[in-house]
Structure formats: C-alpha cells, structure tokens
Design a protein around this nucleic acid. Structure first.
Lengths: 147, 147
DNA sequence: CTACAAGCTCAACTTAACTTGAGGTCAAGC
DNA sequence: GCTTGACCTCAAGTTAAGTTGAGCTTGTAG
C-alpha cells in the first residue's frame, strides 16, 4: 500500500490541534505511542490522529484521561485497530453519554421545579438526595469537561 | 415570624452535606456569607442552605464555582432573595443545561457516526471542527463535573 | 469551673491535565 | 559547515476545588 507516512510530533500537533506538550503528556500517560528515530525523535503512525481526535472528543464530553486511557487500552496494541475495535469503544461511550444526558435532563427539570421551592435542604429535596445522584456514577465518565 | 435560627458552620455542614472546610472555602470565594459572633465564630442565616444546595447542584451539572459565583452575585446582597430572584437563576441555568444536553446529544450521535469512519483528522471531521465546538461555549457552564 | 468538642486562621498538600522553561540535540537549507 | 527551527528531557509552575494539619480560642455540659 501507500508507504505509510510517519508523522513528527509537530505534524501531529498541527493536524490534531493539540500542543506538542500535550502529546508528550498523553504519551507518558500511555494514551498514545510512538517509536523513535535513530536521533531519538518521535515518529507516529497516522493511527495516532484518530486516537488523539478521540481523546479530545471524549474529554469534551467529560471523560477523564484515565478513563480514556482504559478504553483505549482495550484496543489491540499490536495491530492497527479495525473498525470493529473502534466500534466497541463507540458503543461503550454511547451508553455513558446516554446516561449522562438522561441525568442532565433530570437535573434540569428538577432544578426548575426545585430551585425556588424551598425544598432544597439536603434531607428533603428530591434533587439532592435521590440516591442516584450524579456524584455516585460509577461507570463511565465522572467528569464532564467542556473547557 | 419565627425567630430566625442562625446556624453554625458545623450545622450548615451537616445539613448541606458539604465539609466545613468547603464552606470556609466558598466563603473566601464569595459564594456564601456569614457574620460573626462576638467570639469570631461564623453564623449563617437559613438562606445559606439553599445557596449551598444550589452550589452543589450546579457543580454536579458542571458549572464552575466561578460561574456559580457570578450567578449568585446576581442575587440581591441586601435582602433575602425572593422566589423571583431564584427564578431568574433557574431560568438562566435551564438554558445552559438545554444547551449542554443538546451538545452531548450531538456528540453522542456524531461519535457513533464518526468514530469508526476515518474522518477524524481535525480538518475534516464534522465533530471536531464544527465551529460551535463545546470548547467555544461562552455562556454558561464550561465544565461539567459529575464527580 | 473545667474538660473537650467545635471554631478560627493560615499555610501547605492533593489531583488532573497540562504548560513553561532551562539546557542540550537534530536536521534541512544555503 | 553552519545556522535555525524543530526536538528532546526533566523539573517546576498553574488552576480548580478543596482537604489536612498545626496551633490557638470558644462555648457548653457536667
């Protein structure tokens, strides 16, 4: 096939929109991988672009790097991930997103009913002590960052 | 009316479910206020319970303390907020939540279409460079924290 | 009136996710 | 063959949102 152009950090940074320092950082966290040239410089397969894109998208919906790392770890280390490999990830995260969306809706509606009603002492407000509070979410993203 | 029982930090902490240290912290950030006894101890009006409840709920949906602070600052400083005062807040945040929910949905759906499709280089993927990226959200919450 | 739980202040520590800087190397153009 | 921009490593700094601890004061119950 085409001679698999390898990318430098700078190129990855440019194409992915993340800083070089962030790429270094992701690498220390095991989210992406590179091999080195004889001169010790990083070279990435094009693969990395998708990884980085996913990292960013996932972060935007609030999945922590640690969790993204876990998810990405489920991808095959030896070979380039197939569409099916990515599909698994997508499915897992879709569920998490569905969950999160549902919770936000509940909060939104609850907030409107609740905010002016005087019921917000922790022991009485349905919003505050539902038992299924966001805070308790075990699976999936615990943080929604949209910085 | 009833003789407005004032609350100590400990009582507020217990009733609101946040740590004393967090209450101190919120105070330094201007999110809540107290007056002091002759012995320099904090005393809170019952008002503070609702404030704290709202702080927590807002945080759970990802509004930063800074933004919560701004919102709360819109409440009247001199008097106990009326239902209408709180109503304004509620409305503002409902909009932010609606927005956020919509974005999450878009991301969820986009992710599914996109994640396995090879389109994720920053310059081509609809998810990554829509112009209305989460990252750019000016109004309302920039962070969704569901710790 | 004396314990001792609660409070107080202030400084330092924590985690996540990076960024910045210092000091040194690599590679491509002229 | 040298200059310049891209890289490299490693340490330290940054922000948010608190927590922890030390050392000292209050207030309440017996």
């Amino acid at each position: 096939m085409a001679p698999v152009t390898e990318l430098t950090v700078g190129q990855v940074a440019m194409r992915s929109g993340v800083a070089v320092s962030a790429l270094h950082f992701y690498e220390t966290r095991g989210l992406i991988r590179s091999h080195r040239t004889s001169g010790n410089q990083r070279r990435y397969g094009r693969d990395v672009l998708r990884r980085v894109a996913i990292i960013k998208v996932a972060q935007e919906v609030g999945i922590s790097l640690a969790e993204i790392g876990e998810a990405l770890a489920s991808l095959p280390e030896g070979r380039t991930p197939t569409r099916d490999d990515w599909g698994l990830l997508s499915t897992a995260w879709r569920d998490a997103l569905d969950h999160k969306i549902a919770q936000l809706k509940k909060l939104r509606d609850g907030l409107i009913d609740c905010i002016g009603c005087g019921c917000m002492s922790i022991d009485k407000c349905p919003l505050r002590n539902k038992g299924d509070r966001l805070a308790k979410e075990g699976t999936g993203a615990r943080r929604l960052v949209a910085t």
